[in-house]
Design a protein around this nucleic acid. Structure first.
Lengths: 129, 129
DNA sequence: ATGAACCTTCCAGTACAGTGGAAGGTCAAG
DNA sequence: CTTGACCTTCCACTGTACTGGAAGGTTCAT
């Protein structure tokens, strides 16, 4: 399987796959006599794992860690659980921040819906912000 | 007022203020004979506006737009209202995405709390992701 | 006069996850 | 034999909001 086919099979681009290899997410493959990369079927699963990890909000660095542990013959279960727990806490923090921000902006937006341009004093840029 | 004093008055750094000037957020000031920047009191308000805009989740590019409109002698009210409305929609979208992600991760995390390493088949990297 | 604290410019780098493009090699069809 | 689609490497750049550091000039107190 050449890189273009793997890209198509996994819904990504050849550029990205080479970038993943360079980043240590995909192991360097065999090469054909021509120098072309020649991927085994497994590569599809591996790229799929990377995408699922991203969909779970993990960074490529975290995904790389999991992959490394797995390559060392260990099962990365507890590590993955740790990462997921961490991600969960981050998400909760991020969500509350965004909810608070939403509140603030919603109020500003409401205020701005009753424009009184004359009350914009010259020394402020905008009375709504 | 020199740049260090403005930085202290606004709770930022001289580096950041020079960066703001270069980015078109702060107008180039008068210079003293020494070449030092010499800020008027207004600059404090201007930097404050930039910070409030950021706190409202606007990007520097959006803040720059508002500032430009104001500099052209117009009151940026309706523009600001538009930006805030846009920001509100983005926030809502972002929040629902994060809530959905939180759901997914929470389930994965739960699953991973009952580890069954043996059921990790060799062809997957991790049964939880 | 000398040292500290301040200022100047310019260049480069940070994190993140790629993307763009140039210059060239390979392969199959027509 | 050539055309087009594919592949290779390498280098540089994207966007966001700064941050770090070098090399040098200024101001003020001692």
């Amino acid at each position: 399987m050449r890189i273009g086919q793997l890209a198509e099979a996994t819904g990504t681009t050849t550029k990205t796959l080479r970038f993943y290899e360079e980043s240590g997410l995909l192991p360097p493959t065999e090469r054909l006599a021509s120098g072309y990369r020649d991927y085994a079927e497994e590569a599809v699963g591996r790229v799929g794992f990377i995408h699922r990890g991203q969909a779970a909000g993990l960074t490529l660095a975290q995904i790389r860690q999991i992959l490394k542990i797995r390559e060392h013959g260990q099962t990365p279960c507890s590590h993955v659980q740790g990462l997921l727990g961490e991600r969960l806490r981050e998400l909760d923090a991020q969500i509350s921040e965004l909810l608070a921000l939403r509140e603030t902006i919603s109020q500003l937006h409401e205020k701005a819906s009753k424009p009184e341009p004359d009350s914009c004093s010259a020394d402020q840029v905008c009375r709504y912000i």
